[in-house]
């Protein structure tokens, strides 16, 4: 379980990313965080693995306040949290398999990893992960040869190879077209169900949020302004979160269903 207790985050330039956030995220939930850009969605997600570090409050994961963690403990924590980025963040010049294997780095000794000596079971695990997102045949292809949707699935496979307890996805479909977006979201949802991985996804399309989420968290100006099950959410709720009327481009559409 992940618990935010009065968490605030002020960036060095004085901008307040998070304002007094209190949340409890239960194991195995599929949570979608919505809000306009600049509302603090990314900051919320990134503070869980401390790519940005909250300046106040407590962030408790499995009973420990992670904000007190030293470098080594933090790396230990990060090995259990997979992350998916808007721009995939793959090393474009290397093969898909090597990119997926890099998810094992946190579990591999430094010397061993520097020599590129991944254990055979890690290679098997990487291929299994690729198989689960349906692109195992691309294993030896360079990452930059793949389409955007395929690259995003490689990055999901990389996260899976970590055997994570939590997956954070920061705008995973913002650079993809509608049909591909749905494929990626379905992969995330499937993994969430099969492996019981707590999943947090940032989105700004309201129809996608309602379709895939168990629970929706709404943010505005660094504050949590809505938190409830997806079934209780209507367009009205989104208008309250966004602080304006719903527009056409807040909806993605295009599901093949």
């Amino acid at each position: 379980m992940i618990e935010f207790k009065n968490v605030s985050l002020t960036y060095p330039n004085g901008h307040q990313g998070l304002k007094n956030v209190n949340l409890k995220l239960n194991d195995g939930e599929f949570i979608v965080v919505v809000g306009l850009s600049g509302a603090g969605k990314s900051t919320l997600i990134r503070s869980i693995n401390q790519l940005v570090k909250p300046t106040e409050g407590e962030l408790i994961i499995d009973g420990e306040n992670t904000l007190n963690f030293k470098e080594k403990q933090l790396r230990q924590l990060r090995t259990k949290i997979g992350m998916i980025f808007q721009n995939y963040n793959l090393v474009k010049r290397t093969s898909v398999l090597k990119n997926v294997l890099s998810g094992r780095l946190g579990h591999t000794g430094t010397i061993r990893s520097l020599l590129g000596l991944y254990p055979q079971e890690d290679v098997k695990l990487a291929l299994e992960s690729l198989d689960r997102v349906g692109i195992v045949e691309k294993a030896y292809i360079r990452a930059d040869q793949l389409s955007g949707g395929q690259q995003q699935r490689v990055s999901i496979a990389r996260a899976l190879t970590q055997k994570p307890k939590v997956i954070l996805a920061d705008e995973p479909v913002a650079s993809l077209d509608p049909p591909t977006s749905h494929i990626v979201m379905k992969d995330l949802k499937k993994i969430n169900r099969e492996d019981n991985i707590t999943t947090l996804v940032n989105l700004h399309f309201i129809d996608m949020a309602m379709e895939y989420a168990d629970r929706i968290i709404g943010m505005r100006a660094g504050e949590v302004v809505f938190d409830g099950p997806a079934s209780s959410v209507t367009e009205k709720t989104f208008e309250e979160i966004y602080g304006r009327k719903i527009k056409e481009d807040d909806v993605l559409g295009g599901d093949e269903k």
Binding site: R75, N89, S102, L105, T110, L114, Q162
Partner: peptide, 20 residues
């Protein structure tokens, strides 16, 4: 991006250099 990805998965600075 790739550096951030390896950091986020718990890689240390040498692994960030070698793989990112």
């Amino acid at each position: 991006g790739p550096l951030e990805a390896i950091r986020a998965s718990g890689g240390n600075v040498f692994q960030v250099i070698r793989y990112g």
